[in-house]
Nucleic acid binder design. Sequence first.
RNA 1: UGGGGCGUCGUCAAGUGGUAAGACACAGGGUUUUGAUCCCUGCAUUCAGAGGUUCGAGUCCUCUCGCCCCAGCCA
Length: 558
Amino acid sequence: MEADIKKGHFIHSIIREDVKNNKNDGKVVTRFPPEPNGFLHIGHAKSICLNFKMAQKFNGTCNLRFDDSNPAKEKQIYIDSIKSTVNWLGFEFNSPLFASDYFDKLYHFAIALINKGKAYVCSLTADEIREYRGTLTQTGNDSPFRKRSVEENLDLFTRMKNGEFDEGEHTLRAKIDMESPNINLRDPIIYRVKKASHPRTGDQWCIYPMYDFTHCISDALEGITHSLCSLEFEDHRPLYDWILDELETPCHPQQIEFARMNINFTVLSKRKLQRLVEDNHVEGWDDPRLPTLEGMKRRGYTPESIRNFCEIIGVSKKGSRIDMGLLESCLRDDLNEKSPRVMGVLKPLKVTIENYPDDTSEELIGKNHPQKEEMGTRTISFSKQIYVEQDDFMEDAPKKFFRLSIGREVRLRYAYLITCKDVIKDESGKVIELICTYDPKTKGGNAPDGRKVKGTIHWVDANDCIDAKVNLYDRLFKDENPEQDKQDLIENLNPDSLEELKSCKLEKHLVNAVPEYVYQFERLGYFCLDSRQASKDHFVFNRTVTLRDAWAKFLKKR
RNA sequence: UGGGGCGUCGUCAAGUGGUAAGACACAGGGUUUUGAUCCCUGCAUUCAGAGGUUCGAGUCCUCUCGCCCCAGCCA
């Protein structure tokens, strides 16, 4: 703990200083404020982890608050999904809060602003407002409605609320400074007419507050001490502060901005993800290839691995592009610890063991984890016919190929040493079966004469296994940066991001598999039962991630 | 070209004037009934660049360069 004192990212340091100086009575209250207009992705996980962990570290609380001030885009299904995803990630929150619960208060704050002469009803059209706002290099001009009296503003605003006007006819604007170099301060709109039904307030309102007005006040009402958001809101901070300075709110939270996460070979924006889903380039929001948290969950990602990843990447203000390999490394790290080992053959090649007795089988013992005795053992059936991986046989094998080839001996994991004697080919010359012999004295895998066998391969009993389909996933995009050189996202999709193997043979043990419970198929990778495609009599597994593969790397170099 | 930010190893990222942590990746080597795991070893004389202050600068000052964000009645 002591060694921890100076560690941590800049936000951690700021909060630590604040607590030390007894700012906010030493309390820390944060919030994760998603808009319920889509599903959460790994980028949100960074914010979730940051907010919840900062609260945890300083014995504070973190609210889950839905920023639901735009009924045109928000839906109940997103609210439900977000809640369960935050829980899945491992964070507890008091009952979720909603900006819409503050609509009444927000309305009165708006009236207070009008009464102070700091807000006015503007009757310019959307186009006119844009023109009056000026550009990046030209200052804006005052709206002709800027000088309306408080009484008139009050009357108009009330009538906006009562539904007397159509959308776009009037807006409520903060009266700040049309000449500000910061465009956000050029009399920003804080209320607009929107005749849409809200998922939570129904048709109770026809005016809705804008983000800038809603967010800071919501934060203040909840007693948030540190309002953490992404970099693009840096320009909004003066507005955040202006509103809270003008109004009498319970407190004035501090907004602190940090950089969003980017990961190579994927995209992390709601709009782009939505396009992939809506144009059917993927199966849906929970497609295992997507960086959505629902997709990652279905793929087999563990909450621990995601949390750890968010911890490792840190928090800064630098725009970054994190290597997908780091995410995968965090995943393997966690899975290596807790996944039971099992055997499965993805591309089966039949092997007949000539000298093994017909019509018998035996039970062999396999460890569920090579380093963890406490994870126990299981029995694995063995008989005259087995399947091995096609890749584990090669006719003209290089010297370093420690697997099957005619005349070579390998170890069948937990079983026997076998030697390949012959191959059977079909008309096209393709190897369809191997004829091998086994050494009965090597049960378990060791030779009594002490001879060394370098290669160990996995296998399944052809007479006692389950058939399954396995989905092999690869990166969704071909390019590290899917939109490099303004390429279209879609053209950059990796056509091989999904490979479906339909005749896989898996160890019988897997009949007990349930979704999200990840197994390591030895020598291949980590896999879990698919929650959508699998059924009682149809096994479908998803490859969560491959194992690190030094052999593949070696081949690639040659 | 107005305003706001950011530039430390291939990728993240510590560093808060005292002589460049760590992780991933990469390269070697060892152990191994998973070519997995694990374990060693190596990997920035240099912090976007140029000046300056200082006994001493990634950290302070000046200038230059590069990148990101902002002109929704979205959040």
